[in-house]
Design a protein around this nucleic acid. Structure first.
Lengths: 337, 337
DNA sequence: GTTCGCCTGTAGAACGTTGCACAAACCCCG
DNA sequence: CGGGGTTTGTGCAACGTTCTACAGGCGAAC
């Protein structure tokens, strides 16, 4: 089933069919009708590989770190939904946090001639991203900075961290520990989520006249668990732990439970991301929400604009929202802990 | 950067480079060396679109219902990991439960000339799947039946349901409610997970001389919640609820909490899937484990075999495993409830 | 009635691979 | 040293699309 067959069936030239397919200029209504009828009747579908040789593939590549991260999959879902009634199809690949594998995944997508690329929290040298952005439209998610050759969508994570610190301080907490991650090797002017959150935490704490207290582990259940055990073992343990990510907060909750600490009576626990688990009654974690779905939608729109011809870079900032649930409250002994 | 450039750099013909690339027969070691050196030096990467015109694309399409389903993403991860050091790249698309959108997604993948297709829990007419399996290797996940034109990997979900019923009955439960879903329109000889689980439940209950009791809602938090409320409102409420899926079990837990019922003292709750949430301390749900990761690995291997030339269909059954945690125990009043 | 410009539609040359068909070189054996 | 077979390397015709360049027709304006 080739374009040629459609042309034959409609009694027109191959070029004419191609024009109709691409919505190009110079097509009379009656020809358009005959061609679309023929396409319909034959059930013709364009061969993407052949298209890739000359023009567009109508494919958007989405690079995620991992599918287990709810925020990332929400972004992907947002892209998918936004693209739903366009001719574009999104395809997802997972790349892990290793820069080497990430690079390989992106290259695999470039080999497949995607028309656009969404990089969610890329652990990559930004100069390399700038490089590929010369070839194909790119939008990054959760990369803080001011890129000039590509677009970006970020949650204002410094603000988000500040909201959380304000919430805890207002409740009376003074000794607040933040769990973070080691900065990526490739972070410089451009910075990833965890660094932005840490910076927001530090800023907000100082603003309240408090000394920022950070334990560096990993954004994972295990990482949160380790950080919490370390914090609890101190002579003066914190009255609140603000984990850099909800997954880590889960580990903090486990550690608290193991140590016989009640939450929030003995210690308040908070996270960041508002992942699905945090919403369920049994967990009910105080956290910061950044809508992955809206982020994804925006990415898709930016990409379509770029494909449509825009060249000046755009940056879109999503506002974070504090979500207070049942894991946070006043410190033991009240506001004067 | 074309194959031609590589040929020129290596001082050989284009065909020769192609042979090396494809690992084809008739290549001397020294030519292979020169060509690979040239490829390396130039950083050449084959153009997938051009390949699609003639041969393989080295791309495996993975169709998931949604990224929010942990089992499905685990399968995808398993595929990805298994493919990691092969020349094949997996790409994921999400298709939803609507047969129409699923069909569109699969077609989008076929347009892109994938070399193989993994369909995870497809809500589709199996004759249509048989149809596309004529064109491209297909392996389905969680489709119970005996396909002749494609491969399949299934968890023995009837057995899994039986394990759970045995567990509950042994603990002393007699009034057990199972929450299920309406069977798909396209289910006939071939059956999806929820139907297999329901069948396993029915069989196991009868085997114990008990009447199967099923409430049909949806595999979702909300669905489980509704089913549980209905069950609790009965004159003789069940002492155990075996939700067809962990997500639904979460809704059951919420309903129990709202009704002031303690778990497992007043009512036991169990699920199926062993999703990540179920493992966290705060939830600790009794469930049945089916390893999504192993399932995915097997899918990839089956597909590679098919691409390698196998034609007779294979079916692979993964054994489910009962995971007892803290949401199940003896019924109130002991074994003689 | 000629000229000019616009509007429709077409021919055909790419695009970068693959793999068949074939040629050349080589090896082994009688 | 001739003949057969095998191994190694090459030429070239696809594959299905896009899009430029161009031809022909038609209408308006003079």
């Amino acid at each position: 089933m080739r374009i040629q067959d459609v042309a034959a069936a409609a009694g027109v030239s191959v070029s004419a069919v191609s024009k109709v397919l691409r919505g190009a200029y110079g097509v009379s209504p009656q020809m358009r009708n005959r061609v679309t009828a023929a396409i319909e009747e034959l059930g013709y579908r364009p061969h993407t590989g052949a298209r890739a040789m000359r023009g567009r593939t109508y494919t958007i590549g989405v690079v995620l770190v991992e599918l287990a991260s709810p925020f990332q999959t929400e972004v992907a879902q947002g892209i998918s939904d936004e693209l739903d009634n366009t001719p574009y199809q999104d395809i997802i690949v997972t790349a892990g946090t290793s820069p080497k594998r990430q690079k390989a995944s992106i290259e695999a997508l470039l080999d497949r001639q995607v028309d656009g690329l969404v990089l969610v929290a890329p652990w990559l040298d930004t100069t390399w991203i700038e490089e590929i952005a010369k070839t194909v439209p790119v939008v990054t998610v959760a990369l803080h900075g001011s890129p000039t050759t590509f677009d970006s969508v970020v949650d204002d994570e410094r603000l988000g961290a500040r909201l959380m610190v304000d919430h805890l301080v207002t409740a009376g907490h003074r000794r607040i520990v933040h769990t973070s991650m080691p900065p990526g090797e490739s972070e410089g002017v451009f910075v990833l989520s965890h660094t932005a959150r840490r910076q927001g935490f530090e800023q907000a704490m100082r603003h309240h006249g408090l000394e920022p207290d950070i334990i560096e582990t990993w954004y994972s259940e295990e990482g949160g668990h380790r950080a919490a055990l370390e914090a609890f073992a101190r002579p003066e343990p914190p009255t609140a732990i603000f984990a850099g990510a909800d997954v880590a907060a889960l580990g903090v909750l486990r550690a608290a439970e193991e140590q016989g600490l009640r939450v929030p009576e003995d210690v308040s626990v908070a996270g960041y991301d508002n992942i699905y688990i945090s919403t369920i009654r049994r967990v009910s974690l105080t956290t910061v929400d950044q809508s992955g779905h809206r982020t994804g939608e925006k990415c898709a729109r930016l990409l379509l604009e770029r494909i449509g011809g825009r060249t000046e870079p755009k940056q879109f900032v999503v506002a974070p929202k504090l979500v207070t649930r049942r894991t946070s409250g006043p410190p033991p002994g009240g506001a004067e802990a």
